[in-house]
């Protein structure tokens, strides 16, 4: 096992990289590299080995107080245990969905859960409108109420194929198949090179053997 395990205790929520590698598209080395990143992110404000919402916001926007609906939703989905923090295992499993080699099905499901703001199992027209308004609020794009309403209605009606007033998982899947660019943001090409970005751990484990 080498001296790595005896060096210092791992943070709360630390999980065996071999287990995480088996459950995700990452290799063991990549999981170890992600641990380097995790340690950095989880100690940026509170050094407790857990990523708090403010630390997540700080990393994304360089501003701990920057509120953003979508970043909030991503944090909530990463926080699988719903205890207000992201543990290492949660971090790796969730980032796995963003891996270029992760399944399209997982990416489609993740995006659906993200947009299902009130977690009813459906994306409703009100939720879609709320998200469009949030996007407009954070961008410099200005659209009239009429135009916003038209965009929301048109998109919603196209996605709600059975016309029951809500978008279910199957309708969402079909809509994404029609417009694949909708889940472009569910892939981070960077994750393929994660060991190059955080090589310190990998280098240190190689010399141990």
């Amino acid at each position: 096992m080498g001296c790595y395990h005896s060096k210092k205790p791992k943070s709360q929520g630390y999980e065996d990289p071999t287990v995480l590698a088996a459950e995700t598209p990452f290799t063991v080395s990549e999981v170890e590299a992600l641990y380097e990143l995790f340690k950095k992110l989880s100690s940026s404000i509170i050094n407790d080995g857990l990523i708090h919402r403010e630390e997540f916001q700080l990393a994304l926007f360089r501003n701990r107080n920057m509120k953003n609906l979508f970043a909030d939703r991503i944090f909530d989905l990463f926080d699988v245990k719903r205890n207000g923090v992201i543990e290492f295992g949660e971090f790796v499993r969730s980032l796995g969905i963003f891996h270029p080699n992760a399944s399209i099905k997982d990416k489609i499901t993740f995006a659906f859960r993200l947009y299902d703001l009130r977690q009813t199992g459906f994306i409703e027209q009100e939720e879609l409108k709320e998200m469009v308004l949030a996007l407009l609020h954070e961008s410099e794009l200005t659209l009239s109420d009429d135009v916003i309403e038209t965009i929301v209605e048109k998109t919603f009606n196209e996605a709600d194929m059975n016309g029951d007033g809500k978008i279910d998982q199957e309708e969402w899947r079909e809509f994404v198949m029609k417009y694949p660019s909708l889940i472009k943001n569910m892939t981070l090409p960077y994750l393929k090179d994660i060991t190059m970005a955080f090589p310190s751990f990998v280098a240190s484990t190689e010399v141990e053997d």
């Binding site: 990143l37 992110l41 990393a59 994304l60 926007f61 360089r62 953003n68 609906l69 979508f70 970043a71 909030d72 939703r73 991503i74 980032l95 963003f98 947009y115 879609l128 998200m131 469009v132 949030a134 996007l135 954070e138 961008s139 659209l143 135009v147 038209t150 965009i151 929301v152 048109k154 998109t155 919603f156 996605a159 809509f175 417009y179 660019s181 909708l182 889940i183 472009k184 943001n185 981070l188 960077y190 994660i194 970005a197």
Partner: peptide
């Protein structure tokens, strides 16, 4: 034309999805 925009396409471009920023050193 703005009315031809896909609402999901629009929201998918939010900076809130900039997870690549997590990797900036």
């Amino acid at each position: 034309k703005p009315v031809s925009m896909n609402a999901f396409e629009l929201i998918s471009r939010s900076p809130g999805f900039s997870l690549e920023n997590l990797f900036e050193r």
